[in-house]
Design a binder for these strands. Structure first.
Length: 492
RNA sequence: CGGGGAGUAGCGCAGCCCGGUAGCGCAUCUGCUUUGGGAGCAGAGGGCCGCAGGUUCGAAUCCUGUCUCCCCGACCA
């Protein structure tokens, strides 16, 4: 378990990579750009999935599954979408291998198995889904269609980072069809709120809700809404997007419905998604030099109990005292690990569970048994106290709530401290480059200026915040008039 | 695709410049002592030195080719 400790402050990206590996979340695979998500990391993802899935269903959606492959002719139908994703698509061209006549034991692609039509490995599923929806939609009675899919997608990225950007990643993508524009817009906003609420209440990561500029918009969307979080290095991470697709896909795939009045109209669409990137957000938002720090609501293990003992009899006595507590906590819905491994010493276990981000740790030994106490340590603050064992379950419940709140508050305070409202170019550059945070500034609304700022500072417009208030000002770069401030930051 | 780094034991690395048949730490196994913050001692097992050629009596080391991974940039959820 020994590992090289790199501090956040020294090398943030190395710290991140080490943490992901050392906490047993994921590792690089034999496939370039693709990761293996290990059981502990996957358990966190499953918790994320479970909560989101519940919220999707509460808001009227059902799960379904569509194919991994998209025939090229379908993929190219919505032009902007196709163009936007074309350069990062994996393409299947053959369907068979055969023995290499020149090199025994090796295989080659059988040239005779060339596909009549190439198959695109989905980078996103609008094409295949809208081609399907055409057959499902005849009348206004068939609408709305509210479907979500949990799936993997492939985007052939040049450079990858565990969880943040991998060539293959897991996500969910909602795809809905509506009779009216208003309804589709409502849906887009509703799902953005689901994401925002999840990010803040479950992940304990405060997010800015906003609209993307045209440059940053999803290929094929009329409007892209997003939630943006701030990581501990001051960079922004797009944590989820919800797209208003207008009638673009309905037109591309000829999906029309008969209205109540007997007319024929194209349907309106939305799509929305979050990915395993959220794992990256979770890690980067809260963790410290000791390892992972997990918000209790998403932790696979809430409480770990480490016995301190010399003999088997002592261990048995501890187990007798602790197992009823474990049962009580589990009955209250908590996940409790009694770490009675005889192969590791307590100190080792302390360090290991800290590395893995378990929110609450109990240590109990002969001394505690004699005194009727237990040592309670909380991961977020790294504090510990000795408390009476009797009635400890109430304290633990409270502690978990505290930790959840504290993590959110801490992240919020951090973001507030690193968000700068700036009015001059000099202050803008300083906010991005020196103070390394978000710059809230006026912008003239042109893509050109946006591009220029990006070239000069590597900062992009993360979003036009939904709570933006009208304020007359002048663009930070061009000096042209602006009616409100937008959020700039360097981003992952 | 441009720039950098690296492929040697499960993991992290040294050895390579100056060729002589592989070593360190952690992990693993055995035994004893330990156990309230990453245990100690003694012993043991484990390697087609990324792959393919070449030079040489001899290659981890030199030469050529090739593949892969990581990091930084451009692209992007």
């Amino acid at each position: 378990m020994a590992f090289e400790k790199v501090k956040r402050s020294e090398n943030y990206s190395e710290w991140y990579n080490n943490l992901v590996k050392n906490a047993d979340l994921a590792e690089h695979s034999a496939v370039k750009g693709c990761m293996v998500i290990k059981p502990y990391g996957y358990a966190i993802w499953e918790n994320i999935q479970r909560q989101l899935d519940r919220r999707f269903k509460e808001t009227g959606h059902s799960n379904a599954y569509f194919p991994l492959f998209v025939p090229k002719s379908l993929f190219e139908k919505e032009e902007k979408n196709a163009e936007g994703f074309a350069k990062e698509c994996a393409v299947v061209t053959h369907y068979r291998l055969k023995a290499d006549p020149d090199r025994p034991g090796r295989l080659i692609t059988d040239p005779d198995s060339k596909l009549e039509e190439e198959l695109v490995v989905r980078p996103t599923s609008e094409a295949i889904i809208w081609n399907t929806y055409r057959n499902w939609i005849r009348s206004y009675r068939d609408l709305p269609i509210l479907i979500n899919q949990w799936a993997n997608v492939v985007r052939w990225e040049m450079r990858t980072r565990l969880f943040l950007r991998t060539a293959e990643f897991l996500w969910q993508e909602g795809h809905t069809a509506h009779a009216t524009k208003e309804e589709a817009l409502d849906e887009t906003r509703k799902m953005l709120d689901v994401y925002a609420q999840f990010a803040e209440e479950w992940m304990a990561v405060p997010v800015i809700r906003g609209v993307k500029t045209e440059n940053e918009r999803f290929a094929g969307a009329d409007e892209t809404f997003c939630i943006e979080g701030m990581m501990q290095d001051g960079k922004a991470l797009q944590m989820g997007t919800s797209h208003f697709l207008g009638q673009n896909f309905a037109k591309a795939f000829d999906v029309r419905y008969q209205t109540r009045e007997g007319g024929l109209e194209h349907v309106w669409a939305t799509s929305w998604g979050v990915s395993t990137r959220l794992m990256g957000a979770l890690i980067m938002a809260h963790s410290d030099d000791e390892g992972l720090v997990l918000p209790p609501k998403l932790a696979p293990i809430h409480v770990v109990i480490v016995p301190v003992y010399k003999s088997e009899e002592e261990l048995n006595l501890i187990a007798d005292a602790v197992l009823p507590l474990k049962k009580t906590l589990e009955a209250a819905g908590l996940s409790v690990k009694f770490d009675d491994r005889d192969t590791q010493k307590p100190g080792f276990k302390f360090a290991e569970w800290e590395l893995k981000g378990v929110p609450v740790r109990l240590a109990i030994g002969p001394r505690d048994l004699a005194n009727g106490t237990v040592e309670v340590a909380r991961r977020d603050l790294k504090t510990k106290e000795n408390l009476p064992f009797a009635g400890i379950e109430t304290h633990i419940q409270q502690l978990l709530n505290d930790i959840q709140k504290n993590l959110y508050q801490r992240a919020l305070d951090f973001r507030s401290a690193k968000t700068y409202t700036v009015n001059t170019w000099e202050d803008f550059v300083s906010a991005i480059d020196v103070k390394e945070g978000f710059a809230v500034a006026h912008w003239d609304g042109s893509g050109e200026t946006e591009e220029k700022i990006k070239e000069l500072t590597k900062a992009t417009i993360r979003c036009i915040p939904l709570d933006q208030h009208e304020e007359n000002g002048t663009c930070i770069l061009s000096g042209k008039p602006s009616k409100g401030r937008v959020v700039f930051a360097r981003a992952y």
